[in-house]
């Protein structure tokens, strides 16, 4: 047999797919799967929340409260009790033992924690100017409890963290990126919840005082230094102007009266205004 040397032209051992095309497919697929996981997580947490008894929630709440250095605040507690007395008799909120805490922080915010715990930051208390505004803030937080938003955020955040840790390992840079991207998604979801809590808050405020005065004051003051609207797409709360507009629409629709507000009583005023 004669040996005829021949150089092969095609290489069957190496795939011809361009590596960047391959990368695109896989990254795209991964994004799709993670999106699917996120949606499923949302559905399952929603389902699980409806079945979580308040007893378990209280237990989670104790864990969550450890994150903050807080003091029980009797004057705030009294304001909350006054609001609670105006809840309808069949409200699910009667199952909770509400506690208001004051936390020393510059942040202008209040948080609804599981188990009926409300944490008000001192930064917020410094900005509040009337009794009605304070009642609106507390009623807004009660709205979160009524819709059980505080648990939803918790469950989804946990689910995202677990899912990304499973995919990419606990401390990899990829998992950090993915979870932060998804958490901003989560924030957007939460804007809708904030709007719903606003509506609940307004109704309760009107029941408490007989009029809706002061409901938008706090946001109106905030609107001035809120900045551009675009930044609020990824923020946890809607833009103040959007909240004011929504509240005013509701006030008109339900024909709530708008009367003068009560000045803030001295007992909740912070002693050192530093």
């Amino acid at each position: 047999m004669k040996f005829t040397p021949k150089q092969l032209q095609k290489n069957v051992n190496v795939s011809t797919t361009h590596p960047l095309v391959e990368l695109l497919w896989m990254v795209g697929g991964l994004t799709f799967i993670i999106g699917l996981v996120f949606i499923l997580l949302g559905i399952t947490t929603d389902w699980a929340i409806a079945k979580t008894p308040v007893r378990i929630e209280t237990w989670i709440g104790k864990l969550a409260l450890k994150e903050f250095t807080t003091n029980n605040n009797p004057p705030l507690q009294q304001r909350l009790q006054e609001l609670l007395e105006h809840l309808p008799a069949d409200s699910p909120l009667h199952q909770y033992q509400f506690q208001v805490y004051l936390a020393a922080s510059e942040e202008v915010n209040a948080i609804a924690l599981p188990g009926g715990n409300i944490v008000v930051f001192s930064g917020l208390l410094q900005e509040v100017e009337s009794e009605n505004e304070l009642a609106m803030v507390l009623a807004h937080e009660l709205g979160h409890f009524a819709h059980r938003d505080h648990l939803r955020g918790l469950g989804r955040g946990l689910g995202i963290t677990v899912a990304t840790a499973m995919l990419f390992g606990e401390s990899s840079s990829t998992s950090g990126l993915v979870s932060s991207a998804l958490l901003s998604f989560n924030n957007r979801y939460s804007q809708r919840q904030e709007a719903a809590a606003d509506r609940f808050g307004l109704d309760l405020l009107t029941k408490r005082y007989g009029h809706a005065g002061g409901a938008t004051d706090f946001f109106a003051r905030h609107n001035a230094d809120a900045g551009a609207k675009t930044a609020y797409i990824l923020a946890s709360h809607p833009h103040p102007q959007a909240r004011i507009t929504a509240l005013e629409q509701q006030i008109t629709a339900k024909q709530y009266k708008n009367e003068t507000t009560e000045a803030l009583r001295d007992d909740v005023k912070l002693e050192d205004k530093e």
């Binding site: 795939s15 797919t17 990254v27 697929g29 991964l30 995919l167």
Partner: peptide, 14 residues
Amino acid sequence: LATLRNIFGGRVKS
């Protein structure tokens, strides 16, 4: 690319 392949399976073309 190979790490991503580890998730999906298939030929590790890279």
